[in-house]
């Protein structure tokens, strides 16, 4: 049974906090979550025994290409420019050890 505790566990996995602002603006996020997951139970009525799952409807996909680096001068610098914090040519994160 889904409840606030299990919703919190899922939020933990998603690296999200269940914050109060959600309940002010959009109804209670846990209640909504429980209601939406409850609706999904309609799928129990679908006859899917022996049915192959369809994960992506691609037709005539690109064949894999050779794993070779391509030169894009200056691209690394441009990507690093987008980092909110960096140290030299590295992305900076808080200490983890």
């Amino acid at each position: 049974m889904l409840d606030e505790k299990s919703a919190k566990a899922v939020a933990e996995l998603a690296r999200l906090e269940l914050v109060d602002s959600d309940s002010h603006s959009r109804g209670n996020i846990v209640d909504d979550f429980v209601k939406i997951v409850g609706y999904m139970d309609i799928l129990a009525h679908a006859q899917t025994e022996g049915v192959d799952p369809l994960y992506c409807p691609i037709i005539e996909a690109q064949p894999p290409r050779a794993d070779e680096p391509k030169s894009r001068p200056g691209l690394a610098d441009k990507i690093l420019e987008e980092a909110p914090e960096r140290v030299g040519r590295f992305f900076a994160v808080p200490r983890i050890v």
Binding site: A7, A14, L16, S21, D22, I29, F33
Partner: peptide
């Protein structure tokens, strides 16, 4: 949590579940 909106967070939660 601060920079993703409520609807996006709702769908991430559902997807993670």
């Amino acid at each position: 949590t601060k920079a993703l909106g409520p609807e996006v967070r709702r769908r991430i939660l559902l997807g993670t579940f």
